[in-house]
Deep mutational scan, measured.
Amino acid sequence: MKVIFLKDVKGKGKKGEIKNVADGYARNFLFKQGLAIEATPANLKALE
């Protein structure tokens, strides 16, 4: 799953980066902790 990092995550990505991560890791950790959001077209446009 492609995500946009909202904060730096050690070993995974830095704020503003778009990367592929495992679906479960994204849903169960990154999204719940507020560290990333899904890289949807609307979210990508908002990032610009």
Rank of each mutant, 00 (worst) to 15 (best):
M1H: 05
M1I: 15
K2N: 11
K2M: 15
K2G: 05
K2D: 10
V3W: 01
V3A: 01
V3R: 00
V3T: 01
V3M: 04
V3P: 01
V3L: 04
V3S: 00
I4M: 08
I4E: 01
I4P: 00
I4W: 03
I4D: 00
I4R: 02
F5L: 08
F5D: 00
F5V: 00
L6R: 02
L6M: 09
L6V: 08
L6G: 01
L6D: 01
L6E: 01
K7L: 10
K7V: 15
K7T: 12
K7H: 13
K7I: 11
K7W: 10
K7R: 14
K7P: 00
K7Q: 13
D8T: 12
D8Q: 05
D8M: 05
D8A: 07
D8E: 08
D8V: 03
D8H: 09
V9Y: 04
V9A: 04
V9L: 07
V9K: 01
K10I: 13
K10E: 14
K10A: 14
K10R: 14
K10Y: 14
K10N: 11
K10F: 14
G11V: 01
G11I: 02
G11Q: 05
K12M: 15
K12N: 10
K12H: 15
K12V: 15
K12A: 15
K12G: 13
G13A: 12
G13N: 03
G13M: 04
G13Q: 02
K14H: 11
K14E: 08
K14F: 13
K14V: 10
K15Q: 10
K15N: 04
K15L: 08
K15R: 12
K15P: 05
K15M: 09
K15G: 04
K15E: 07
K15W: 04
K15A: 13
K15H: 04
G16W: 11
G16V: 01
G16K: 02
G16Q: 02
G16H: 09
G16I: 01
G16F: 09
G16Y: 09
G16D: 06
E17H: 05
E17M: 07
E17Q: 12
E17W: 05
E17S: 06
E17I: 04
I18F: 03
I18S: 03
I18Y: 03
I18E: 04
I18T: 05
I18W: 03
K19P: 00
K19L: 11
K19D: 03
K19G: 07
K19H: 11
K19Y: 07
N20K: 13
N20M: 15
N20V: 15
N20T: 15
V21K: 00
V21A: 03
V21E: 04
V21L: 06
V21D: 02
V21W: 02
V21I: 10
V21M: 10
V21F: 08
A22R: 13
A22G: 10
A22H: 12
A22Q: 14
A22T: 12
D23R: 14
D23F: 14
D23L: 15
D23T: 14
D23E: 15
D23G: 14
D23K: 14
D23I: 15
G24F: 14
G24P: 13
G24A: 15
G24R: 12
G24N: 14
Y25F: 12
Y25I: 07
Y25W: 10
A26G: 05
A26S: 06
A26Q: 08
A26M: 09
A26L: 12
A26I: 10
A26W: 12
R27V: 11
R27E: 07
R27H: 09
R27M: 10
R27I: 14
N28F: 12
N28M: 12
N28K: 14
F29S: 06
F29W: 13
F29R: 07
F29Q: 07
F29V: 13
F29D: 06
F29E: 08
L30T: 00
L30A: 01
L30V: 00
L30M: 04
L30D: 01
L30W: 03
L30R: 00
L30H: 01
L30Q: 01
F31P: 00
F31H: 01
F31T: 04
F31K: 02
F31G: 01
F31D: 01
F31N: 01
F31S: 02
K32D: 08
K32G: 06
K32P: 15
K32T: 11
K32L: 12
K32A: 13
K32S: 11
K32W: 08
Q33W: 15
Q33F: 15
Q33Y: 15
Q33T: 10
Q33M: 15
Q33N: 15
G34T: 03
G34F: 09
G34L: 08
G34A: 07
G34S: 07
G34V: 03
G34E: 06
L35E: 02
L35R: 04
L35P: 00
L35M: 08
L35S: 04
L35F: 11
A36W: 01
A36R: 00
A36V: 07
A36S: 02
A36M: 01
I37L: 10
I37P: 00
I37Y: 04
I37A: 07
I37R: 05
I37E: 05
E38G: 04
E38N: 04
E38V: 06
E38P: 12
A39G: 05
A39H: 06
A39S: 04
A39M: 06
A39Y: 11
A39W: 10
A39V: 04
T40V: 04
T40L: 04
T40R: 03
T40Q: 03
T40N: 08
P41I: 10
P41S: 10
P41N: 09
P41A: 13
P41G: 08
P41F: 09
A42D: 13
A42Y: 07
A42H: 10
A42L: 09
A42W: 05
N43P: 02
N43F: 06
N43K: 05
N43G: 05
L44F: 04
L44W: 03
L44I: 14
L44H: 04
L44S: 04
L44T: 05
L44N: 04
K45Q: 13
K45D: 10
K45E: 14
K45M: 14
K45G: 07
K45V: 11
K45H: 11
A46Y: 13
A46L: 15
A46K: 13
A46F: 12
A46E: 10
A46M: 14
L47H: 10
L47G: 05
L47S: 07
L47M: 13
L47E: 06
L47A: 08
L47T: 08
E48A: 13
E48G: 12
E48F: 11
E48D: 12
E48W: 08
E48H: 11
